[in-house]
Design a protein around this nucleic acid. Sequence first.
DNA 1: GTAGCTGCTCACTTTTAGTAAGCAAAGATA
DNA 2: TATCTTTGCTTACTAAAAGTGAGCAGCTAC
Lengths: 118, 118
Amino acid sequence: MPPTSMGHCLTTLPSLRDALDVVSGKWKLMILVALATGHQRFRDIERSIPGISSKVLAKELKDLEQHQLVRRTVQEGPPVLVTYEVLPYADTLDPVIFALREWGLNHRRKIMGASSEA
Amino acid sequence: MPPTSMGHCLTTLPSLRDALDVVSGKWKLMILVALATGHQRFRDIERSIPGISSKVLAKELKDLEQHQLVRRTVQEGPPVLVTYEVLPYADTLDPVIFALREWGLNHRRKIMGASSEA
DNA sequence: GTAGCTGCTCACTTTTAGTAAGCAAAGATA
DNA sequence: TATCTTTGCTTACTAAAAGTGAGCAGCTAC
């Protein structure tokens, strides 16, 4: 669907709502990317996402698990080892992440450019 | 960038953060779509987005204005007429909206399908 | 033994979202 | 003329979420 035809599409708002109900928020997509980029341990994920707190991470991971985007695995130890991984279904979010990433990249350029202009 | 190569891209997390700082949240993209689909008046937008309140809409519109995604225009009356419109820059978000919309569409199908399975 | 790491949780404060009401200016209805 | 409605919000209040800092059990490393 080309941008300008958005006006003709009655399903946009409801579908967008459905998507946002699952992935909106400051952290969920960040966590998915962190997982996808090889961070599987709680502390590891936490460290890889600047600004997130243990509390929020724990909560978001639970949410993502419920939505079947992430799986938590406990390998009984000792030491007990907890691992998180993105489930295949989460890969369907790649276009979203990609689009957002591109936009973020561009937006930063715009902001930077604007501040250095006469 | 193909999905599986995401792990190689160090700029993903920061760019995603930049994007999310502007467009994350329950309502911003919904509002942009509402505007893009022809709703220009405050009440009109409010009615077209189920569940949003005047307070939140007013706040979000201000945010969007600050980020130069939306313009507010007052035509002195009487009656005074306030109009909102998406600025061209907001069109750069179309890929994001499109991706989310598609995902939402699919996710709903998945949820629906899952609940009707044996 | 004591210092550190892991994967969290708890109590608390701060911020944000949501709810209901209302208000001034104007227009339509009667 | 009265009152009812619509518009574009704001305000006061409550509820929910996010952020902060500490802490804890279980283990390892020194």
